[in-house]
Design a protein around this nucleic acid. Structure first.
Lengths: 186, 186
DNA sequence: GAGGAAGCGGAACCTTGTTCCGTTAACGAT
DNA sequence: ATCGTTAACGGAACAAGGTTCCGCTTCCTC
């Protein structure tokens, strides 16, 4: 837990996380590294000492919330609802998370080199959870069983792109349609 | 139709369109302007004389195919199928178009400044068509009537992002689920 | 065949991510 | 308390991408 050895290093890492979170709220996840460094009162080099790449900084900022989402999956399954309901609720959580983070969904799916780490982190953490929920719903016969968790997660993520900043586009409703579309005869 | 007055200008515009199309096939829609200029054997300045921005070049390259897609809509409605089937088929056309153009879907939804023109062109041309199909299907009672054409098009476009370059992600199937999800009681 | 302007090329500029390296200052040992 | 080592810092510099600028070329017209 105590990764940085020197006191100033620990302090700077903390400032950076705070500054990045603030910048992401203010200007979206695509806030320039220089802006974040300026907010934190450090040089750009310091960012790269703590976070090898911008994607790693993003991961660090959202790690807690992603983990919380991952942990909510089993809890929903254990709760009384049917597996399909549990799946739908979990996806709602995921969508809420994505939609409230300016531009995160876009960056998640971006095939620009440099964001594989981000993509991979989300997948590592959330894919197993989604697969568990999906399998349970398929096993109960509520949904078709020919959709992979990966495709579903990615589709949901894609639908969340640009969900803010356009009142005409309601990602939540479309995700709802997609999940509803899962209920079909095999 | 004869916009450029000088012969060399007309020739260059033609070369640029060809070079851009080739570059888009080879490296995706995000091919650097410099590469396209080099392919066409012109300077970068020449690109910007003919196409004020990269987005305008993209529009010019795909204009014909977008128009074809737009014109297919009424034809499908006039054909014998039910409105929902016509809508589904038209969306298939749209998806095929997006999926075969490396990265076009991503750029279409990108909120990066500079691509509004592209977004607007697609919307101007295709939104009325989609709305017509959607209204017909809603009027026939086949689908719920609380989904706007804009949201649907955007959702479909979003689902197509990254559809190439990942065999695990089948955009067509997910779009199918989404369209299936439209068939619901109001 | 000249003159003028339309058009051209590509260097230069801006922004953004990332690297590099000379300098600073934290901290363990004395 | 001081010193020396070295982790850590800051920000200039680099790369890549879009866009702008402007001196030169070349086409068209008279």
């Amino acid at each position: 837990m105590e990764r940085p050895r020197r006191a100033d290093a620990r302090r700077n890492e903390e400032s950076l996380l705070e500054a990045a979170a603030a910048a992401f709220v203010a200007s979206g996840v695509e806030a320039p590294v220089r802006d974040i460094a300026a907010r934190a009162g450090v040089g750009t080099g310091t960012i790269y000492r703590h976070f090898p790449t911008r994607a790693d900084l993003i991961i660090a900022v959202y790690r807690h919330q992603v983990d919380a989402c991952a942990e909510a999956g089993p809890a929903l399954l254990a709760g009384g609802a049917t597996p399909h309901t549990a799946l739908a609720r979990w996806i709602d959580l995921f969508v809420d998370f994505l939609v409230t983070k300016h531009g995160l969904a876009a960056v998640l799916q971006s095939d620009n080199a440099g964001f594989e780490a981000l993509h991979a982190y989300f997948l590592d953490r959330l894919l197993p959870v989604c697969a568990e929920l999906l399998d349970a719903a398929a096993a109960s016969g509520e949904i078709r069983s020919d959709v992979e968790a990966y495709a579903l997660m990615r589709g949901v993520g894609n639908l969340c792109i640009g969900a803010d900043s356009d009142p005409r586009y309601d990602a939540r409703r479309l995700v709802g349609l997609l999940v509803a579309g899962l209920r079909q005869a095999d």
